[in-house]
Every structure is written in C-alpha cells, then in structure tokens.
Amino acid sequence: MKIRSIYMALALLLASCARDGQKPLEAVVNEALARAEQQTLLMAEKYAGREGRLPRTWENGEDVSSDSRWWCSGFFPGTLWYVYENTRNPKVLEYARMYTSRVEREKYTTDNHDVGFMLYCSFGNGLRLTGDKAYEEVLLTGARSLATRFKPQVGLIRSWDHNRDKWQYPVIIDNMMNLELLMWAAERSGDKSFREMAVSHADKTLEHHFRPDFSSWHVVSYDTVSGQPHLKQTHQGFSDDSAWSRGQAWGLYGYTCMYRLTGDARYLQHARNIAGFLIGHKNMPADGIPYWDFDSPDIPSTPRDASAAAIMASALVELSGFVEPAEGEKYMAFAEKQVRTLASPEYTAQPGENGDFILLHSTGAYPFSSEVDAPLTYADYYYLEALTRIKQKLQS
C-alpha cells in the first residue's frame, strides 16, 4: 500500500512539474541515460587497450587512472552495468564484462575494507543482471576476505591499517557501504556469521558514530581491549566536529540499505533521521547539491560535491518506498531536484568532454587538495543508480 501511494504521489508530482513548465521527469531521466551511454562508451573505448587500468578522474586536461587496488576500481564497471540495464546495448555488455574482470583479483584483498565497493558494484551488478555463476564465486571469496577485518572484541570491520600511532582500530562511516556484500554472502552461502558481522557493525556504528543532530563523524577509532571509542575525528572533512557531506550521504545510504536487508525498524528510523538532517540543513543549497562540507567556513564560496548529491539522491529514492506517503513524497521531491540539477548543463558534461566522465564538480578530499572540483567515478555510478531507480518507479 505504501509503495502504491508513493507512485500516486509521484504521478501528481509529475503533473505539477508539467503545469510549472518543467520538462517531465521521465524525459529528464531518459535524456540523462542516453547522454550517460554516450560518455560511458567513449570512456570504455579509450581505456580498452590499457590493460588492467580503470578510470579514476580527469585533471588538468589529462586522464588519471588506477589499477584495481584503488578503492574506486569497481565503480566504472558498475556504471557500465547500469548503462547496460537501461539500454541492453550488447557493446556495453561486452565492456561491462571486460572491465569487471579487471577487478577480480580484489577478491583476495584483506588489507582494507573497500572490497565491498570494489566487488559488489562490479560483480554484484553483473550477477544481478546476467546470473553468471562465476561471479558468485568472486563475491563469496571477496566476502570471506572482507570478513577477516572483523574483530569480535570490537564488533566492527576495521577500515584502515595506516596511522597506527594515532588510531588503534579506525572505522570510517564509508564502511557502512560494504555491508551489503556480507548480507548477500550470508543469504547465498547460508553462513550466518556474515550477517552477524554486518548487523554488529551497523549497530555499533549507529551507537557511536552519530551526534545528537544525526550528523556523523568521519573516523571513530576504537580501543581494541574495551571495544569502546577512544577518538572521534575527521580525515576528509573541514574539522572533527563538522559534517563532511559525502560522509553524511554514506550514512543515509547505508542505513536505508540495511533496513531493506533486515527489516529492522531502528535502521529505518535512523535513515529518516539522517535524511531530515540533510534536507533541512541551513547550508543545503537550493539546488540540492551540497557543499563539500556543511560547515565549511567559506560557504558559499567553496566547492560543491556532486558525488554526495548522487549518493543522497539514490538513497532517498529507495527510502521513499519504506515510509508513509507524505514523507515519501518529500524524499522523492528532493531526489528529483537533485537529479534535475545533476542532469543540467551545469553538472553534466557535453559528449567527449570532461575526460569522458558524466558529471562535473565533485570533491574527493578537499583538505588534501585532491580531486577538488573534478569528475569522479563514484559520482557517475551513484548518479546512474539514482536515474535507474527513478526510472523503475516511473514504469511501475
């Protein structure tokens, strides 16, 4: 009943947009997907002969690539899978398989927590769309590798191994995004320990990572003996007490996902609380594209982060289906605003420009002057996911 009501509300919203002279949302989504296919094919063709390389960003007029070790390696293959899902272009499928294969060795990675990003965005989408049994083995092996980073005494998956002089057991909010792989592995393998790890991680993150206003710290380091936090700070945000925008989006997405996978009402309520913080923040720009940090002292003369908007929009579309109709309509309206902005010439590159990335104006790590006002693979990935989710709602 809630889902049906959301669709009715979406239909009313579309009718209102038409009356206001806006292009219908369906047309915006379809045109955005067509442009995405153009750019993604150009990118795939460009990198096809660069064995083992994957796009990372584009700066100073030059390509910046990585091998599979970079934490973002799974996003371009995932973008190809979303393009294929919407177009069924056999050439896109060929490229999706090829670039996904470039990430396979990461199924053995045990020295960082990004295995979920690397494998579930690539092989996970590939399995969902093709049913290729070989992809199952990669994902299960990857889940076992990720599970080695879970310490029962702490109850969380360790994020990083560096800065040991400062952090005993660092966990970053981004780590919520890797739980879906463990939840899938539990269901597929029948090994309940994967689910227990994911739930434990989500529970302790909910308890220790969030402030009373439902903003989150970026890094929480835990004492390895007591299992309690000994340090809460930032690594990529403005300050330890600021709200780094992409981190807030990771939290929103992560708890929305965990509600879908567990049905635990606590996770739904927490996702709603984070959504309220983001949508109602006094420094949220009118067009829905956050500044890189909500507490940057240079607002409004500071970079935006299209990647944070894309992650947030995708999460809000999903969250809208889990709540009462009026609340769901609010989430859909905000996600629509974000997608319309991202699909506009201000944020979408012309074909063949922007190093063949889709979106402009993302911010990777501002404090390190890294990938500032630049295209990023994960911005494109979550933008395609948001478009796909909206399209599916419109067609239902």
Rank of each mutant, 00 (worst) to 15 (best):
S301Q: 14
F277R: 03
S296A: 15
H270F: 13
Q269A: 07
D287G: 07
P300L: 13
M284E: 02
P290G: 10
H270R: 11
H270W: 11
R266N: 13
K282T: 10
L278S: 08
D293M: 07
D295Q: 12
F294V: 12
T302D: 15
P290C: 10
D295T: 12
F277D: 04
D293A: 11
A286F: 05
G288Y: 04
R272L: 08
N273L: 06
W292P: 05
H270A: 09
I299V: 14
P297I: 13
H281L: 00
K282H: 05
I299G: 14
I274W: 01
I274V: 06
K282N: 05
K282Y: 03
P290K: 05
Y267T: 00
D295I: 07
Y291A: 05
R272G: 03
N273G: 09
T302P: 15
R272N: 05
L268M: 11
A275D: 06
H281Q: 01
A275Y: 05
H281N: 02
L268C: 03
W292Q: 02
T302N: 15
M284N: 00
G276L: 00
G280H: 05
G280F: 07
D295S: 09
H270V: 02
Q269F: 06
I299Q: 15
L278V: 13
F277C: 03
H281R: 04
G276F: 00
D298H: 12
A271N: 09
L278D: 03
N283I: 05
G280Q: 07
A286P: 00
R272S: 07
I289K: 02
I289Y: 01
K282G: 10
S296L: 13
Y267S: 01
F294M: 14
G280N: 06
P290E: 08
I274S: 03
G276Q: 02
W292D: 00
I279T: 01
L268H: 05
P300M: 14
N283S: 06
I299S: 10
P300A: 14
I279F: 02
Q269Y: 09
L268P: 00
P285T: 12
D298N: 15
N273H: 11
A275F: 05
P285S: 09
